[in-house]
Design a protein around this nucleic acid. Sequence first.
DNA 1: ACCGTAGGTGTACGCCGTACACCTGTCAAG
DNA 2: CTTGACAGGTGTACGGCGTACACCTACGGT
Lengths: 238, 238
Amino acid sequence: MVEQAETLRRKPLSRDGVLRAAVALADGTGIESLSMRKLAQDLGVVPMALYKHVANKDELLDGMIDVVVAEIDPPVPDADWKAAVRKRILSARQVLRRHPWAPLAIESRTMPTPAVLGYLDSMVGTFRAGGFSADLTHHVMHAMGSRILGFSQELFDASRRAGRSGTTDPEPPTALPPEAAARFPHLAEIAAAASHDEASVVGQGCDDQFEFEFALDLLLDGIERLRQQGWTSSHRSR
Amino acid sequence: MVEQAETLRRKPLSRDGVLRAAVALADGTGIESLSMRKLAQDLGVVPMALYKHVANKDELLDGMIDVVVAEIDPPVPDADWKAAVRKRILSARQVLRRHPWAPLAIESRTMPTPAVLGYLDSMVGTFRAGGFSADLTHHVMHAMGSRILGFSQELFDASRRAGRSGTTDPEPPTALPPEAAARFPHLAEIAAAASHDEASVVGQGCDDQFEFEFALDLLLDGIERLRQQGWTSSHRSR
DNA sequence: ACCGTAGGTGTACGCCGTACACCTGTCAAG
DNA sequence: CTTGACAGGTGTACGGCGTACACCTACGGT
């Protein structure tokens, strides 16, 4: 009878289960289309049931962020601060690539969640252990900005349009329609430069991973130089 | 009679007027609370009237972004690419500080608006004119990321909570509640380091402008070093 | 046997974006 | 002067959203 089916469903739907279902749903259909109602439906439950586990949608989003941040590898004990920072950030990046909605969600929150604070705190710890002054570490954290959490924060991030429209269209090239190329000649030029690099197999513009590491290393190298110079506030390097 | 009041209102409400009113409203109450209905009310008009001037809310947002980008100073003709880039980015930053909702709005769009593309294009042009290869320029643009548009893209950007709750509370210090300081000792330490710098008059944490320029110069200096070394893809500097 | 409580339900409210049919004033062509 | 196209403002309505509030129900401890 029907009761049986209902009774079978009863794994009482913990807070953690709700958060994980929400993450899965956002992964699948994009954060735009994540609603309490859809999430409840996914869980075979009436919308208001969710409110027994999260206070409201904002808290749900915070919880989802915490789930994602928890996936980042713990810091590796490493003699070299630079390698340690680099590894951890690249791990964060891997995680965020599995959850393309996360960067925007993180940025949208007005306050960082405790999990994010914990991540930042341990990152600061790595710098301090690497011989950075508290002062320099502070500025360095600002300089890294969101890159520290593994997102390159591009203006035009294709991976961000999360809810692909269901048609699974064959990933259109998107590399500047020709009328745009005329209006923006410089952009067209550097887009072309990227395309006929060695890795132009797919011809899909440029290699995200390479660009991320390029920027990351540029920053880390600059940072290392400051540290070696014993940089301190109020006199810049030149 | 009433007709008169109505008739007096008639300045037929151009698209540009709509966009500017929308920007003003977002500046005042935050982008979260910008709705077609509120905007229409501000303009003394019924909501559906707006749709004679913008196709939908997304297009409204795109238009608002274009309004903001148009406020950025034009590129200065300058012998030194670095000074030119620096000036323009700092100008962009000034603009975005007047419109704290703009960074998030820009990031949320799936495609950059033509105005943003134009800005990026002219920035690329500055690098190219400064002797950068198309290849290096491409990577450099990625490295600068959103900083190029003047936002530091912090994880915890106080200026982003745009719709202050009306109470105009006296800007609470917010500098880590003491229980948090215990859980995140490294963060507490660098927060303290920032506070007793010379500029601790207001004691409000740290100097946004300084942090932005620190990061910007760190990047620009690293970039200059690459250019002087004649950097090219597939062999990094070390 | 009792009852408190954890957790799922049902209804309802106010807000949102916007589709669609409609009205009204202006202005050019006949 | 008439006419009719059209730009632009109106009114109604629909479906979706977050969530307040009252309710029910099953279970575990006493």
